[in-house]
């Protein structure tokens, strides 16, 4: 029996809840939430690929492109509006993704993972070696105007989180629509049996190409938002450990639903922040143990908790 899909109202509700948090929770928490939501967009891209059986260890490639598009737009080209920059970042990802996607759509499994990783590391070294791009120390990104509203008029500590949530939840809604579309389901088919997919007259290569670009757009928009949120970009955005973290969060959240990356992202930031605070020398171990426990006891990620919960409810309702 199919449950009624309540994702869109939930997304609206979450948007209102998160926006309320900007006004009613301490600043450090709303900041943490903003970082988590922006980064969860990148994870959404990772999940989009994972649903098609592809693991990208190189989403930092697009994350970094987005960040540097934001940085250079305001520092070098005088484009300081976050709305325009988000669109530019998305376009940048489409162009970059279309070029490297031509190569990547021929590969699967470990080969796909390693190639994405290699690409992000190439971008990393190009930036590190190039003082004109800010070198390894990176550069600062000033607070943007947001859809014409200058940071002097409205406190960016309020406007930037609201803008981030609006962009993110819009993309979440679109991603949900995509997951439920024919192309979205074709991803699941791609993971299960590529040959049968081809017999359905769908091109597996075209599908991988498309999904890679979509995931790239999500990562790039996340990167642009992060550039404004943290006020600084550096090549670390493209470093493989950054990409690895996104895969970690994807595993933590699960791939079962469009909201899983959001849950994973928020939980991850909170855990990391507390681990940093309580175990300054052991925080990596805390994260490692959590990942290990997740894989052993909850291989489907945090989202599987809601499935279990709903199942139990159904059992209770049954006579």
């Amino acid at each position: 029996m199919r449950r009624k899909d309540r994702t869109y109202p939930i997304l609206v509700g979450l948007f209102l809840l998160f926006s309320g948090a900007v006004f009613f929770t301490p600043r450090w928490f709303s900041f943490l939430l903003t970082v988590a939501v922006a980064r969860s967009l990148v994870v959404l891209g990772v999940v989009l690929l994972m649903r098609a059986g592809l693991v990208s260890f190189g989403q930092g490639f697009f994350y970094c492109i987005g960040g540097y598009v934001a940085g250079f737009s305001s520092n070098a080209f005088g484009v300081t509006d976050a709305g325009a920059v988000v669109i530019l970042a998305a376009l940048g990802a489409v162009v970059a993704g279309a070029i490297v996607g031509l190569l990547l759509c021929n590969y699967r499994d470990i080969f796909f993972a390693m190639l994405t990783l290699a690409l992000s590391m190439i971008l990393y070294s190009v930036i590190v070696k190039n003082p004109a791009l800010g070198g390894s120390d990176g550069f600062n990104v000033p607070p943007p105007t947001i859809l014409g509203i200058s940071p002097e008029a409205v406190d960016p500590r309020v406007s930037l989180p609201l803008f981030t949530f609006a962009v993110a939840f819009l993309l979440y809604a679109l991603a949900h629509r995509y997951f439920l579309s024919g192309f979205g389901y074709a991803g699941l088919a791609l993971r299960m049996n590529e040959i049968r997919l081809e017999y359905l007259s769908l091109s597996a290569r075209a599908l991988v190409f498309l999904k890679y670009i979509l995931a790239g757009v999500l990562a790039s928009v996340g990167g642009a938002l992060i550039a404004y949120i943290s006020g600084h970009v550096d090549p670390e955005l493209a470093y493989w450990t950054t990409s690895g973290e996104f895969v970690f969060i994807a595993l933590l959240g699960g791939t079962g639903h469009v909201l899983a990356p959001l849950a994973g992202g928020v939980v991850f930031e909170v855990i990391r922040s507390y681990a940093f605070d309580l175990a300054p020398s052991l925080w990596q171990m805390v994260l490692g143990v959590i990942l290990l426990l997740m894989i052993i006891f909850m291989p489907e990620g945090l989202w599987s908790l809601t499935e279990r919960f709903l199942e139990r409810k159904r059992d209770e309702a049954a006579p």
Partner: peptide, 10 residues
């Protein structure tokens, strides 16, 4: 990362 350090600083 720098983002993480900014978060921790806050």
């Amino acid at each position: 990362s720098a983002t993480q350090q900014v978060t921790e600083f806050r």
